[in-house]
Nucleic acid binder design. Structure first.
Lengths: 333, 333
DNA sequence: TATACTTAGTTAAACGTTTACTCAGATAGA
DNA sequence: TCTATCTGAGTAAACGTTTAACTAAGTATA
């Protein structure tokens, strides 16, 4: 038999209300003797409170949902880790949901999270989502979005990085180093993230007095395969380019592979800049110059923002735009 | 006001028991008319069942705990993904716990998982754990261990790969290719995993009639930093070696970096074999020859095993030893 | 017609907590 | 001494479901 608060109460010779108060540290009005006796029985019996019962009455599960596209994508573990640490610090626990950028999966998870009555949802929306379904609009649980925008949904908070600026700085750096024929291998331009990075790419050219060429934009998705294939194609078609600004590090790493195979040197023949600064960027040779996103911090801040809101310390800043940072390594001159 | 089963019952003109039965598909004894009416009201009201209330009475939360050292380590996202997919398929949800190989964190999470009444725990034990604490022994929730052994704990199942054999094959391959001075940069030998890999390393030498040299074992931990530092040291101290068998891919990738910096060619000058086959192994140049662990499958199987046990389809195999596979790429001759 | 069995539901207890309210006794003030 | 206040605890309702036990009405059987 599972030991409950009732058993503790009996053994300690007090009422269950008293036990409950002791457990929840609402014991200002309990004498030391009583409290110690209760505590002792709890310990002796190895009592573990049943949170589902308490959630039933408090309407709090001390659980957050984390919805991301895919934990297998190296950008997300850091972020997830940040969220988890932030949540854990406040005694919260995390339910992990991989949406695979699949709108249907996203909605079915959303429903599950509601059924399980999580106290909040940290959300990195599918890059495919352009419109809100009714499932979203009905949502009564607070949502904080991270990394990506979710238009049309009422949010409790929003955490992004300044993608335009990050891209701008990266491309400026390339231009300053004398690179002139920069191709941008981008992620899907449906998403605001990719659009902003492209905007930065354009602005850098303009500010440096160079005419950006539209053909230099190659739209794809955020995978190394895509980076590899497109770079290979550029080489084989003898396209005239001297550098690559990649939509993320995975794309850049794919480009590395293609260039290595063709014995093209980085950075002497071709310069490369990525985006994200995943852990591999440092390990690879030459080290990848990239725009670092503070992904751990993004996750951590998101959790923090969520918990602030839950605890109703309201008035806290609702939108954070974090700074990215250009990390210069060996893949650029 | 949140809409509950009670509202639905009133609006549909039936008892709450009837509503409950149609929700849970226990409706063999409900007429079509009644069921349809209930369903209609549910839809119209946007009713979402409260799983915490139902967990209260069924003693099932349809939630699994996943305890791993660190989701940020590239070996784990694949595994976590496997667990998640397996769980999700059966309508289960996953609570993510990063223990950081910290015994205290591990125990505090364990307690949380019990409080939240998860139905089972998928566990990759800390590599530091050698003995069971009372928190473990008191555990009444079923546990399936993955990847690592947990001695002294009653398990519902166990999923491992044959590390000894994997290492054996890798080292045999190295020897067959003519490498003779193989150094083994290992993870912490506290863990059975690392011990088994070392055992394979030894057996391969013996079977090939070569005397293994004890000095060729370098114990450290599973990080690229470690691989980098130790390889650099070997080079700088002019140690005579022609190949590296690394405890995992991260170590191998660290070794890559050190070798590249010193302009030592892979595989011409030094051959390298890793372990795990993380996604980077393929992307890096030259591709890393490595022992593939079916990490996704391990996770998936673990979830499957757990859910079988929960559903009491007992008699299912309690221990799975999965096969690893040598993946030959460019880092060996 | 009397009896037994089905059918399609309903009733009410139970799950393990939290918490607003109540209460008895002790203490203090007048 | 009487009343008011304070202290330390107890009582019982409530949270939203599930499910065993029950029931009323209809149908089949003898």
């Amino acid at each position: 038999m599972k030991v409950t608060i009732k058993h503790i109460a009996e053994l300690a010779g007090v009422s269950i209300a008293t036990v409950s108060k002791v457990i929840n540290h609402k014991d200002e009005k309990i004498t030391h003797q009583t409290r110690d006796r209760v505590l002792e029985v709890i310990k002796e019996q190895g009592y573990i409170p049943n949170r589902v019962a308490s959630s039933m009455v408090t309407k709090r599960t001390k659980t957050l949902g984390l919805m991301i596209p895919d934990i297998t994508n190296p950008f997300f573990p850091e972020l997830a880790r940040g969220v988890e640490d932030g949540a854990n610090e406040m005694g919260y626990t995390l339910i992990l949901c991989n949406s695979d950028n699949d709108l249907q999966k996203e909605e079915s998870y959303l429903e599950m999270l509601q059924e399980k009555m999580v106290d909040g949802i940290i959300f990195t929306a599918s890059s495919r989502r352009t419109t809100m379904s009714s499932a979203f609009l009905k949502l009564t649980i607070p949502v904080v979005s991270v990394d990506r925008e979710i238009e049309g949904l009422k949010l409790e908070g929003k955490i992004t990085v300044d993608n335009e600026k990050g891209a701008f700085e990266a491309v400026c750096y390339l231009l300053e180093k004398g690179y002139r024929k920069i191709y941008h291998i981008s992620g899907p331009l449906l998403s605001k993230t990719a659009k902003d990075r492209y905007a930065g790419f354009i602005r850098a050219h303009k500010e440096k007095g160079i005419m950006p060429i539209e053909d230099h934009l190659l739209e794809g998705n955020y995978t190394s395969t895509w980076g590899y294939d497109y770079t290979k194609k550029l080489i084989e078609e003898h396209v005239d380019f001297d550098s690559l600004f990649c939509g993320n590090d995975l794309i850049a790493l794919g480009a590395y592979k293609a260039l290595h195979e063709k014995n093209i040197r980085i950075p002497e023949d071709i310069g490369i800049i990525g985006f994200d600064d995943i852990y591999m960027a440092e390990i690879v040779s030459p080290g990848l110059t990239t725009v670092r996103q503070p992904s751990y911090s993004m996750g951590y801040k998101a959790a923090e923002m969520m918990l602030d809101r839950i605890k109703n310390k309201d008035g806290i800043q609702k939108e954070w735009v974090l700074e990215s940072k250009l990390i210069i390594r060996g893949s650029t001159k």
